[in-house]
Design a protein around this nucleic acid. Structure first.
Lengths: 129, 129, 129, 129
DNA sequence: GTGGTCTAGACCACC
DNA sequence: GTGGTCTAGACCACT
């Protein structure tokens, strides 16, 4: 489980960490109940302050993507479709916003659908534990 | 041309202003070369500082969505497909990220494509100047 | 003698007018002692305020590029190399600044010299009445 | 890293600041990833308002010459040839304009080329990070 | 301490 | 009246 931080990125470091871990989870690289590095481990690996990792993990836990067991570590949460309908609404709204701008930029419906098919082909058949 | 600011929103005010005006432009409500409110006018309407509007307008201008003429006012920029290849890349990348998360949340490809068709139906045939 | 103004240009209108007339003179399209449009004529052609033209002409006269004869009109000044050594210094300084940035952007000396040759080829042999 | 502002200069202060820092970068005095003074530091040194520096830095960042890291400071961006094709076009166009006027002022092609060679000799072999 | 955002109030150039 | 620039002083998020 490795990723790098971009210190020139405008986003806060903890946002980058969240985004990276989230990507590892939704791409299926990290499986359900798999252990992820402890706060201290990751802080050392990335050479940043543990507080920053702490904040990222806490956020991910609130979002239902990971869970922590005291004295054991943090783990990938098993997928639960019903867990966050709010997140789904949010994504749909973002999706519509992006599509609207694509329409404005003269991207054809066919091109847009092609992107959808492409993503589903790449990620759709991945195993989910 | 009216919209409201949400002072509880965590985003900077000028970002909200940008987003609102952008939406008015890409939705076709504001037409090419149509005049938008002056910096002072809008500041008064929204009861915020003119500098904040100024910043939003300046940003929108560098993004190619509006143009400002000294002593005349600010106007919607005529659409220019070739103007913003970078923005298109950015949008495509965002699109893929959202779709990836939708895959993870078990949204079917058919549902995703339905959203695309829906947006194109609603906005695709709008007149452009 | 025609040119167009770009109202979206950030420069003041009178600067654009100056630049256009200057280009017509240095490119040899307007010859020495040739008459240029009166303030009123040009103002009407461009549909802008005569004061703006007035200011442009006054500036050009100060720079030695045109001269005005009361009740006759304005004319292209005959070329006089010794007239503005200051302008030459200014140009040389600008030239060096641009070249310095080209160096930084990895443009080769050969490319730069090619541009020089190209311009001289195009404009060098033009007749100067 | 020192320079002075000319308060009689007609250009905005932030433009002067930008020009000065740009010169330090393209001349190689400031190296890649080298830290430049913080907004507040420089404001104090020049005895002007921090907002003015902020604006200059922001502009330099969008031009790709520096990058800023929150809570860390601002730094010289590593050179990226592909980053700025638009700027190159702009410079070339300016170069041609200046050369055209030099032709008009009877500066010989040889003299112009000599200037080019001179600049490349002075700056061409500087180290880049 | 750093960059980023915001306000209030001011002056300038342009048309 | 319009956009553009500048100051002074303030608060916030981040590390």
């Amino acid at each position: 489980m490795m990723f790098q931080l971009d210190f020139r990125d405008k986003r806060p470091l903890y946002e980058q960490i969240k985004a990276n871990i989230k990507e590892l989870i939704i791409s299926g690289i990290l499986k359900s109940d798999e252990r992820i590095p402890s706060v201290r481990e990751l802080a050392q690996t990335l050479t940043i302050n543990p507080n920053t990792i702490q904040k990222a993990y806490k956020d991910l836990e609130t979002e239902g993507l990971i869970y922590s067991v005291r004295a054991k570590g943090s783990f990938v949460a098993p997928f639960n479709a019903a867990a966050n309908p709010a997140r789904l609404d949010e994504l749909m709204s973002e999706l519509e916003k992006i599509l609207a701008e694509l329409v404005y930029l003269n991207v054809s419906q066919e091109q847009a659908i092609a992107v959808v098919r492409n993503v589903y082909e790449k990620r759709g058949v991945k195993a989910r534990d």
